[in-house]
Design a protein around this nucleic acid. Structure first.
Lengths: 152, 152
DNA sequence: TCTCATATAACTTTATATGTTACATGATGG
DNA sequence: CCATCATGTAACATATAAAGTTATATGAGA
């Protein structure tokens, strides 16, 4: 199954933005992400509605961070994307008349629910700031002489 | 994203088979599952290789359970299906040169891994026999006067 | 008013789960 | 033996959704 990588993508964008003051055009971000500007606008739209980023049109426009990185968790970002389903597996039918299937669904649902809850909880423990710090640490150990530039 | 329902489907088949002695033809099972016989053969192939079911050709042939239901867990069945990926989300790129993406991946991977581990652990706690017992309990409370037939 | 940049709808591409058809193989019963 | 039944499997078709692309509208500077 093709795996949704919007969360991974959005975090990538946000972290890039956190390394230097904005604004960043969709085209710039798209190049860094090796994708299309429209894709960037699409995944950023949810974040804008919630106020994590702002967008400006025209000359000197683009995307700007508008949140406290230490207060936004990966869970928050996930929710801003519309809380897409986390699991690649599901029940064959959700409200089956077949009692066998009901028994199967009940068992699977419990396991699925627990796993989802744990994942959301873990995402809620990590802030964007923690990610940014981790990035800078990686940058430091790779290029001890400076940290103004980094490969995309 | 479309969710994989092979596990749900296989369990459904196995539980149906557990309610009465076999063998069952792919066509019979397909009707009960509202799908195609070839689909049944496809999802049963993995189980046969591991020895959870047997298949016989020709007259009187079909699929037969060949395992101790109390010893086979949902995790075992999942593995027999080839251990398909459990999560609907993944990293944009797995081995990125970008340090930002490495930081993102590291954080997500940890959360993803923990959730997968929990899910597998939960699946490992449930045996086919437990599911079968649960089914019979549901059947009993719905049709107290007998338990030879059930809706599909 | 020209250029830049976002906003968004519509469309295309790609991946993959699922469904279907066709034919081969082997087992059983007459 | 040979007709029938059933699995085994490859090949093809369909459905759905993620991701990419194109086109056009809108608004903000210079």
């Amino acid at each position: 199954m093709r795996r949704d990588s919007k969360l991974s993508g959005v975090l990538h964008v946000l972290l890039h933005m956190a390394q230097q003051p904005g604004p960043f055009t969709s085209e710039t971000l798209a190049k860094a992400m090796d994708t299309n500007p429209v894709v960037i606008r699409r995944i950023m739209a949810g974040l804008r509605e919630i106020g994590y980023v702002r967008s400006e049109k025209g000359h000197g426009g683009g995307w700007t961070l508008a949140c406290d990185l230490s207060k936004v968790t990966l869970r928050d970002v996930y929710d801003a994307l519309g809380s897409p389903s986390l699991l690649a597996m599901g029940n064959r039918t959700e409200a089956p008349g077949c009692l066998v299937e009901q028994a199967v669904n009940a068992a699977l649902d419990e396991a699925f629910h627990d796993a989802e809850a744990l994942l959301l909880s873990r995402l809620g423990e990590v802030t964007l700031e923690m990610l940014s710090d981790d990035f800078r640490k990686r940058l430091g150990s790779r290029k001890p002489q400076g940290m103004s530039a980094h490969r995309v």
